[in-house]
Design a protein around this nucleic acid. Structure first.
Lengths: 235, 235
DNA sequence: CCAAAAGTGTTAGGGGTACACCCATGC
DNA sequence: GCATGGGTGTACCCCTAACACTTTTGG
């Protein structure tokens, strides 16, 4: 059987739509938030949804996710990772659309709202504020949350949510918000510092009415070289 | 804009093919193996490939994976988990095909070879025996291996690869093969037994020319109830 | 008795937990 | 000085790694 005859035989299968949806996490210093848009097109016009779009025929799936994130936030080089693909037959009213969910962590201090063509507006919402969502987006979100809680303990990705310079207390608050737990201050500090992936700066907080905290920066190079030697980030 | 006009506007996007590929792991008592087929159709006729097929328009993606596995092995209710979706524009010569990779763990003693329509034949190969593979299947395989090594340490999935009744030595050998390491016998036993997820049977090995080992069985119920209380399987 | 693998006990050290305490700043 | 959070030291406990040892079978 030739390539061309196979193409003919299989052509009825080529009727899928492929989309990409992004779960974008941010942190406002107190609680974990996600970026939602209000849909500006049918179906689910006016509903809250995750930012996403159909993938173009000449576009890699990863590229599509990067494009969506850039259109929405104006940011490049943000943390972006594939999560899972959702392919229930009836998940989209317009036809057979398979969606691949991505999750992204962004530093809220760098965020520039930029409603894209498919969105009326975008805004941050904490998890408790969320209303009904379009499609199966609630399920995608829950999957992303589970993944984040798993990943954040085993990979140094929490830093993506903080400003480049941060205090250990901010870092601890972030972990407590994401994991929904409490850590002992002394032990948290010892653990994170013992990994030697933070660079202590000669700077402190300004204008606080208590002893100012030292600022730190995540040392990407150091982490990369440790990781090559088998070092595992944990908790 | 109505639903119907949206359907019209978006129809040019609905030209994707969606496929599913399965990385099926097995264990022969010595080393980790995967199930490969020899392709019986173009493209890549005659090449080794992962078992997979195009998803039908009226079929969920998960269903397609289950179908493929059943057609190939005759087995139902096997461990099957989604891995990752591969969507490079040029990954398939016949057109734009996005594939979702799954990985599966099966008990080789239950396996019934059953070459499906799309395969000339299926066979077990250890990792070192693998030759060039069709499409980007080598990449899918590597991703599956990484996932397996991560998952097997944090979830009690190794048992899926063993007979229902097994010795602790078999279990240790399995872990050593998957993770490519060595464990101290005494410590391995203490660790696994301390989790209390194995049921000790009043049976031993037969016809071995040394002291016969006790047989164990994974206690699914026990694990489920422990997991609900926050217990985490580890190593 | 010997070989081979099953199965157990002991010890030393590292890492985590709990908790008490001191330090620097603004007001 | 006081309130507020930053930052540190210590004692205990458990888990783990390392390793030596005993047990049970077939031949």
């Amino acid at each position: 059987m030739s390539l061309e005859s196979e193409r003919q035989r299989l052509s009825p299968f080529f009727q899928f739509g492929q989309s990409v949806d992004c779960v974008v996490f941010g942190f406002d210093g107190v609680s974990l938030q996600i970026l939602v848009i209000e849909r500006g097109a049918e179906p689910f016009f006016g509903y809250e949804a995750l930012p996403g779009d159909l993938v173009r025929l000449d576009e890699d799936i990863d590229e599509a996710a990067t494009r969506i994130l850039h259109d929405l936030t104006g940011l490049n080089n943000v943390f972006l990772d594939q999560l899972k693909t959702f392919g229930r037959v009836d998940r989209h009213p317009l036809g057979r659309v398979v969606t691949t969910a991505f999750y992204s962590l962004i530093n809220q201090t760098k965020y520039n709202p930029r409603p894209a063509s498919w969105a009326v507006k975008a805004r941050w919402k904490s998890l408790s504020e969320l209303e009904e969502m379009a499609f199966d987006h609630r399920e995608l979100l829950q999957t992303a949350l589970d993944a984040l809680q798993r990943q954040v303990r085993q990979h140094p990705i929490g830093f993506e949510l903080l400003p480049e310079e941060f205090t250990l207390a901010q870092l601890q608050t972030l972990y407590e918000a994401v994991l929904n737990t409490q850590f002992d201050k002394a032990n948290f500090r010892k653990k994170i510092l013992s990994m030697e992936v933070l660079k202590a700066l000669d700077k402190t907080q300004q204008a606080v009415r208590h002893r100012p905290a030292r600022l730190y920066r995540f040392d990407t190079q150091r982490y990369t070289s440790l990781a090559k030697q088998g070092f595992l980030f944990e908790l």
